[in-house]
Simulated assay, not measured.
Amino acid sequence: MTPRHLMTALIVVLLWGMNFVVIKIGLKGIPPLLMGGLRFSLVAIPSIFFIPRPTVPWKLLVTYALTISLGQFAFLFSAMSLGMPAGLASLVLQSQAFFTVGLSAMVFGDRLRTSNLIGMLIASLGLALLGSISIHQTGSHVTLIGFLLTLCAAASWATGNVINKKIGPTAVLSLVSWSALVPILPFFALSFYFEGEDAIAFSLRHMTLPSALSLAYLAFAATLIGYTLWGKLLSALPTHTVAPLTLLVPVVGLTTAWVILGEALTFLQVIGAMVVMGGLLVNVFGLKLWNAMMNIKAHP
């Protein structure tokens, strides 16, 4: 990995890690489902007029968009509006890695390694510990529904990853821009049904500067710029080199939530978070660590 690759990766991690604090700020002035519709409207328009449509069957494109865009962010935005802190959301959402591994095994017959299973078990225990502590802690703002909806967002993201694997290699910016068309109407329809016409009209008429800047960040920085740079990294470097970098996203998310929003974790929450991160590390690096240990034993 060259210094340029490292700088690109750092930019992506920062953009995606700060994403959760930005969402929390935006939700103060915009209902979650309306924010989803506005976000993807800004992503799709005007970019689709300048970027060619990806050579992907419409069925796969629509399915991809309904899972990784509509499903993931409808659940995530709703979870955060119902009490899921930004920092914890950034961590719990990374459970998508395990959903992705499990779904890939079922759909494509991918072989699960022992390190995957051990990592899943460790992270599951960490999530259970973190969720139990956070929800039952006195004075905590974490709600059970917020925690569960974040897990649903992770499962939706993982499903989108599996669809993306079916799609195969394609232009990332093109896929992101054109797939953003699909969730716009469903988001607005869901917003109209669940949030109501009055709430939509009030939010649009009284749009604050922080809310407007949050939408711009989510659409342009986190989505268009973030995914484009990520796609360039994936095309330039082996996947096993790039993928582990996402483990830094919750580190940035937890840190920025603490600095900007004052979301300090208790000691027990930190323990739970460390267990989850430990499971993620075992899932990604477990086989390499095992092979390294075996090599050391074989060549003392």
Rank of each mutant, 00 (worst) to 15 (best):
R205E: 14
T138E: 15
Y227F: 15
V251C: 05
L254Q: 01
L234A: 04
L215Q: 01
M207L: 15
F192K: 10
L218F: 00
I135K: 12
A123N: 08
A154K: 06
K166A: 15
C152F: 14
I260M: 03
A180F: 10
A212C: 05
V249Q: 03
I133H: 02
T138A: 15
A216T: 01
S203K: 07
L151R: 08
I163S: 06
E197T: 07
T246R: 05
V259E: 03
P169N: 09
A219M: 04
F194C: 02
H136E: 11
I167F: 12
S235Y: 06
K232L: 08
L248G: 04
D198I: 14
L204S: 04
H136Y: 14
G196V: 10
P250Y: 04
F188E: 13
T246S: 12
A221D: 01
L181F: 10
Y193H: 15
I135A: 11
N161T: 08
L237I: 02
A153N: 07
V242L: 05
S179V: 06
L127I: 15
V249N: 07
I163V: 15
S134E: 04
S203Q: 09
K232S: 04
F202P: 01
L144E: 12
G146P: 13
G146C: 12
L209H: 00
T143R: 10
F192P: 03
A199K: 14
H240C: 00
S177R: 12
S134L: 04
L204K: 04
L181P: 05
S211C: 00
A153I: 07
I260H: 01
S235A: 15
P238T: 06
F147P: 05
G139C: 10
I163C: 13
S191F: 09
P250Q: 05
L204F: 06
T159I: 10
H136V: 04
T256A: 09
L125P: 08
A171M: 12
C152L: 15
L190W: 14
L229H: 03
S211E: 00
V142I: 14
G131V: 02
I167T: 11
H141I: 12
S203F: 07
F147W: 09
L209D: 01
L248A: 13
A158D: 06
L233Q: 08
P186I: 09
E197S: 12
L148C: 10
L148S: 10
K166P: 06
A222K: 00
K166T: 09
V142D: 08
A153M: 09
A219V: 02
V176A: 13
L190V: 07
S156C: 14
S235Q: 13
L237F: 05
L129Q: 08
I133P: 01
L229Q: 03
A222Y: 00
L151H: 08
A243F: 04
A212Y: 02
T239D: 08
L233K: 04
S214T: 02
K232V: 01
G126Q: 11
L204E: 09
L234M: 15
A257D: 01
G196M: 11
V249A: 02
C152I: 05
F147C: 06
T138M: 10
A158V: 07
L224N: 00
L213S: 03
P238N: 09
A155M: 15
G160H: 11
F192A: 13
V176H: 06
W157Y: 15
S156Y: 05
V142S: 07
A236K: 06
